[in-house]
């Protein structure tokens, strides 16, 4: 879990100007996300964690915070 968290944070830091981004900070509410970044994030999560993000997974709630992303990855990988 900690390793995954570090990986996600490292990816987000490439695009987000908030070094102290908290695990529960809402990246949408903070205004960091445009549609291009959303697409990059989906590609990153799919590649890094070997998951396929389906239509039904596209709820913003799955990607809103680092914690939510971790929970989503956990759910996807355990469902395999």
């Amino acid at each position: 879990m900690e390793e995954n968290k570090a990986k996600i944070k490292q990816f987000l830091m490439r695009f987000i100007r908030k070094p102290d981004l908290d695990d529960d900070d809402d990246i949408f509410a903070l205004g960091f996300v445009n549609s291009l970044f959303a697409m990059q994030l989906v590609m990153y999560l799919e590649k890094e964690f070997a998951i396929v993000i389906e239509n039904e997974d596209m709820s913003l709630d799955n990607f809103r915070t680092i914690h939510r992303m971790l929970a989503f990855i956990e759910a996807k990988t355990s469902a395999k």
């Binding site: 549609s35 291009l36 959303a38 697409m39 989906v42 239509n55 596209m58």
Partner: peptide, 17 residues
């Protein structure tokens, strides 16, 4: 195709890429 509201942010961007 996809969900309501994802037309441009996901589907069009993906296709246009």
């Amino acid at each position: 195709l996809g969900q309501v509201g994802t037309g441009l942010s996901h589907i069009a961007l993906f296709s246009l890429d």
